[in-house]
Amino acid sequence: MLSYILRRLGLSAAITVLAVALLFLIIHMIPGDPVSTILGPKASPELRAALEARMGLDRPLPVQIGLFFMNMLRGDLGLDVFSNRPVTQIVLGQVPYTLVLILVSILWSAVLGIALGCYSAVNRNSLGDRLTGVLSVSVIAVPAFVVSLYSLLIFAVKLQWFPAIGAGAPADWGDQLHHLVLPSLAIGLSWVGYIARLVRASMLEVMGEGHIRTARAFGLPERQITYGYALRLAILPTVTVIGVGMGFLLSAAVFTEIVFSRPGLGKLVIDSITTRNYPVVMGSVLVSTLIFVASTTLADIVNAILDPRIRAGK
């Protein structure tokens, strides 16, 4: 187990390095240069050169990437162009909002999706199964920002059941939770459908396997067969999908945070892109990437805990 985790972490580290280098290059290719943004178009060449030197932009690209890595490892992502505050501090201040939003969304949608998937698989072709199928496919087709807008209009503006904007008072858990409901509904809804479909398909596949027939031939209770024997296996692909899905949730969070004016990484990225605040863009995208890599790593480790064959590298 330990060796598997170490190997997996090594892989994640390699992926991170690659992703960061790629990110660096992409940001560099975005049109518009940061120096003009900061100093304005009429700045003197001397001033421009001075700032370029301070930001390290006058060095060759590989050196810039190398320096960026060194600084990143020290937790230094540069300074905000406008406020001169450390980017690390700004970005980390927003991470909890997004993380909570994503985790709550994935939690409720996974629990509901898995339950519906099991129900559909066990009651295959029943009315309930068909209904779940139709609903699942419909919600998968609806993008998060559409759900955001409509839920905002219906539940916040018209019915006024939930607050429309913000993340709630900092010290008030109940208020924060209240503010989470609509955004996490928006992000999680299509995942319910997706996970339900996925679990149904893999449950049906597993239920047709020989070992389930064995379990039945020994007269094991059907409940135990479904949840103890079949779901235990059918859940494996779902865990992987949830791990990868964190990436999609991060991008869905961008829209949702804007619609609900929620603080968070998504909002930070958009705000800093529109102001060409490159260090902040870089910092927030970097942290999103790290979250994504961490969640896929975690999913693989959870799978290794659930499946001995993965642990043994078979």
Binding site: G210, H211, T214, R216, A217, Y229, L233
Partner: peptide, 24 residues
Amino acid sequence: MRALRGTEISMVFQDPMQTHNPVL
């Protein structure tokens, strides 16, 4: 029937690679 299976009547199947739950 379920009460009978695995007590009075038990089974061995053809493919031993498929007979057991792989994660237990």
